[in-house]
Design a protein around this nucleic acid. Structure first.
Length: 261
DNA sequence: ATGTCTCCTAAGAGGAGA
């Protein structure tokens, strides 16, 4: 089972990149973020023609998440139940034995912004949602754009970024609080090259200079960790014409060792 | 290095968001 995540920064603009990537890598589930379109405008026919089902939570212009999958998802849930939010950031469904959540965490803008306090409130609600989800679905994967670089080694210039949004202590603590529920950052289960990032600013030639941050993550519950075979960031699509500012991340899980039933 | 990309409104460029 291969589970991937990709912030596409507009599914309309990035459709060809996504179709090409599906065709190349055949993920079991691809979690998308920043669709930037309403569900009715989602390019469902093209996705289905590529052999994928889609569950979509969209809105006009901003945010928006989806789950693309080879088999239809079961028991979909949109948003964080009990947390009023007009922004479409979360969608969950079950694939086989595994619950998968596609998530687009708030950016926060800056430490003094109202968006930053919203980000921290949102993370607290998301933590509670994951706690409840884990008790019902021990085999859980939470994949998406977290807008948090968890450690200094996830930042190209940690001195310059110290305390800045995406790297501040409260954000890192909010991220660590998710891990404390019994989730692991699958990327760190394996040896990785230094200075591997998932996001590079569009400006200043940041990608070519590898001025990046690792803010896109695939968290796996403790019940799934032993079956995780790999976690890789694919920088290839970031080098294409008209790229998203994010690269896809994907993790592979073996099917065998599920202790269910 | 107020730089880049994508969306919106609204009929031009400018603002929001990232």
């Amino acid at each position: 089972m291969k589970i991937a995540t990709w912030n596409v920064n507009s599914i309309k603009v990035r459709l060809d990149h996504v179709l090409d990537w599906l065709n190349r890598h055949h993920p079991t589930v691809l979690c998308l973020q920043e669709l930037k379109c309403e569900a009715t405008n989602f390019p469902l026919e093209a996705i289905m023609a590529a052999g994928y089902h889609a569950l979509v939570a969209g809105q006009k212009a901003y945010n928006g998440v989806a789950l693309l999958s080879q088999s239809p998802g079961v028991d979909p849930v949109v948003g964080i139940p009990g947390f009023e939010d007009s922004q479409q950031r979360v969608i969950a469904a079950t694939f086989g034995e595994v619950r998968v959540i596609s998530v687009y965490c708030p950016n926060g803008e800056s430490l003094t912004s109202e968006k930053y306090s919203y980000k921290l409130r949102w993370f607290a609600a998301f933590r509670d949602y994951l706690e409840a989800t884990l008790s019902r679905y021990p085999q859980l994967v939470v994949a998406g754009d977290y807008n948090v670089a968890p450690e200094d080694r996830d930042v190209y210039d940690p001195v310059a970024w110290k305390g800045e949004v995406l790297c501040s202590d409260p954000e890192r603590q909010a991220f660590d609080a998710l891990l404390a529920l019994g989730l692991k950052d699958s990327f760190r289960l394996f040896e990785q090259a230094d200075q591997t990032y998932s996001w590079w600013h569009y400006r200043v030639n940041a990608f070519k200079r590898n001025m990046g941050l690792r803010i896109d993550h695939i968290l796996a519950s403790d019940a799934l960790v032993q079956s995780c075979q790999s976690c890789v960031i694919d920088k290839t699509p970031r080098a294409l014409e008209r790229p998203s500012d994010h690269a896809p991340v994907f993790a592979e899980f073996s099917e065998s060792s599920s202790p269910s039933s």
